[in-house]
Computed example of a mutant assay.
Amino acid sequence: MMDGGATSKEPVIAVIYHSGYGHTQRMAQAIAAGAGAELVAIDADGNLPQGGWNLLDAADAIIMGSPTYMGSVSWQFKKFADASSRPWYAQTWKDKLFSGFTSSAALNGDKSSTLNYLFTLAMQHGGIWVSQGIQPSNSKAAQRNDPNFLGSYSGAMSQSPSDASAGEMAPGDLETARAFGERVADVASRFRR
């Protein structure tokens, strides 16, 4: 509640992502469910849907996602990132909240390189990064479906074997993504006060 009993407007959150095989899309959907966010899917040609750029401009927080291919984002995501030089030039996204997520087939898979790329892109836009904020499940008793089993601090990660469909993703990774979305929404709400 703000002074005078008026309620503050909910933050606008956009999840922009590219997904090659559906795994990153499922993460995006889980994050959006946790954050109450709008999804903006980058298509197979690296393009945004109609109204995508407008939604990103209007957003209080932008959560970016890409699969990790060869230690970085997909070329489709890179095409979007390069095209974001227009809002960069106008400083349209300055002081927005940003965060990121990724998926790969290997447990490590150099996913941190992808998150670092997303972090750098956010910093170039003058953004403020929101970390994962979920302690890792790293005890001897930890199970694969525990929250943040992959132990990421900078953003959400998921791992699926290369021959596993998106429907076979680890429920713990999807729950971690949902909780990550909640965290970004919570931070965005506090920034609106």
Score class of each variant (00 low, 15 high):
residue 54 N to P: 03
residue 163 D to Y: 08
residue 180 F to V: 05
residue 18 H to T: 07
residue 142 A to V: 01
residue 190 R to Y: 10
residue 38 E to R: 15
residue 143 Q to G: 01
residue 36 G to Q: 08
residue 75 W to D: 10
residue 36 G to K: 06
residue 135 Q to N: 12
residue 78 K to T: 09
residue 179 A to D: 06
residue 78 K to M: 14
residue 147 P to M: 09
residue 141 A to R: 13
residue 114 T to P: 03
residue 34 G to H: 02
residue 89 Y to M: 14
residue 81 A to N: 01
residue 139 S to W: 06
residue 153 Y to P: 04
residue 164 A to C: 12
residue 96 K to Q: 07
residue 116 N to G: 10
residue 56 L to P: 04
residue 113 S to A: 10
residue 108 N to I: 11
residue 48 L to Y: 04
residue 122 A to L: 09
residue 74 S to G: 02
residue 173 D to Q: 01
residue 144 R to M: 10
residue 61 A to N: 03
residue 72 S to A: 13
residue 26 R to T: 05
residue 81 A to R: 09
residue 32 A to G: 02
residue 35 A to M: 05
residue 2 M to R: 15
residue 46 G to W: 05
residue 97 L to E: 03
residue 85 S to E: 11
residue 123 M to N: 06
residue 73 V to M: 12
residue 58 A to K: 15
residue 132 Q to D: 07
residue 50 Q to W: 05
residue 154 S to H: 08
residue 52 G to F: 03
residue 185 A to K: 15
residue 29 Q to E: 15
residue 64 M to R: 01
residue 62 I to S: 00
residue 79 K to V: 06
residue 169 M to I: 05
residue 166 A to R: 07
residue 55 L to I: 11
residue 143 Q to N: 08
residue 165 S to P: 00
residue 118 L to I: 08
residue 44 A to N: 14
residue 154 S to W: 14
residue 96 K to H: 05
residue 115 L to E: 04
residue 51 G to A: 11
residue 50 Q to V: 13
residue 178 R to L: 09
residue 126 G to E: 08
residue 151 G to F: 00
residue 46 G to D: 03
residue 140 K to S: 12
residue 108 N to Q: 13
residue 40 V to Q: 07
residue 46 G to A: 09
residue 158 S to Q: 05
residue 132 Q to A: 14
residue 182 E to N: 04
residue 44 A to F: 06
residue 115 L to N: 07
residue 123 M to F: 03
residue 84 S to H: 06
residue 47 N to D: 14
residue 72 S to M: 11
residue 72 S to V: 08
residue 150 L to P: 02
residue 148 N to F: 01
residue 38 E to T: 14
residue 185 A to N: 10
residue 28 A to C: 05
residue 80 F to L: 13
residue 13 I to C: 00
residue 168 E to Y: 08
